[in-house]
């Protein structure tokens, strides 16, 4: 019987060990999709960076941000660089979480925070804060426990982990689409 279902793996450490692969794959896909989204809509990203950080972001800065995000995603996919990718992703989402929290506490709820993949932007609320904070924690957890994954991984287990990551990513997209329903088109402000 495989170690996957062996009772010795039914411990917290065993569960974490099994979750690292799928979660890392999910975060990697999310980061790569976010990077592609930023690259495709650089003007909106620049506006979001300006609104959140209070600095004027130019095209080169937006491209650099997208590249860093993509690098973190790719690093998460590969075992030797998974920890570094996880810490980089945690830093990116952690910084983003702080900027969102600052805007939220300052009452700037109508800004386009660039929180979703849709064309419209939802009002900045606790959902966006919780989501970003949870992603930062997940990335940090993956980085911290990246050694929990037994190496080398047999191909079938790697495939199952990848499929689990894809499933999480598709569910995240569905959640993102539902959260964006009723949001206002970008550029409209009260």
């Amino acid at each position: 019987m495989s170690a996957v279902i062996h009772p010795s793996t039914w411990t917290a450490a065993g569960v974490v060990g099994r979750a690292v692969g799928p979660v890392a794959a999910f975060l990697a896909m999310l980061l790569c999709a976010a990077a592609a989204h930023k690259f495709r809509d650089r003007a909106r990203t620049a506006a979001a960076v300006s609104a959140l950080a209070g600095i004027e972001a130019r095209g080169a800065a937006v491209t650099a941000l997208a590249l860093v995000e993509a690098a973190a995603g790719l690093a998460l996919l590969m075992a030797p660089t998974r920890a570094a990718g996880g810490w980089l992703a945690a830093a990116l989402w952690g910084g983003y979480f702080l900027l969102l929290s600052r805007a939220y506490l300052a009452g700037r709820r109508d800004i386009d925070c660039g929180c979703g993949f849709g064309r419209a932007h939802a009002r900045l609320g606790r959902t966006q804060l919780l989501r970003t904070g949870a992603l930062a924690l997940l990335a940090a957890a993956v980085a911290y426990r990246s050694d929990a994954l037994d190496m080398p991984v047999e191909p079938a287990r790697a495939l199952a982990a990848l499929l689990a990551g894809i499933a999480l990513f598709v569910l995240y997209l569905a959640f993102d689409t539902l959260a964006g329903l009723g949001a206002r088109p970008t550029g409209a402000h009260r």
Partner: peptide, 23 residues
């Protein structure tokens, strides 16, 4: 590939299909 991993892969494929349906 043993039976458990094969069924796990099939389950994840089913979850992906359901996720796409939700999307």
């Amino acid at each position: 590939m043993n039976f458990v991993i094969a069924s796990e892969i099939l389950l994840w494929i089913a979850v992906i299909a359901l996720g796409l349906l939700c999307l």
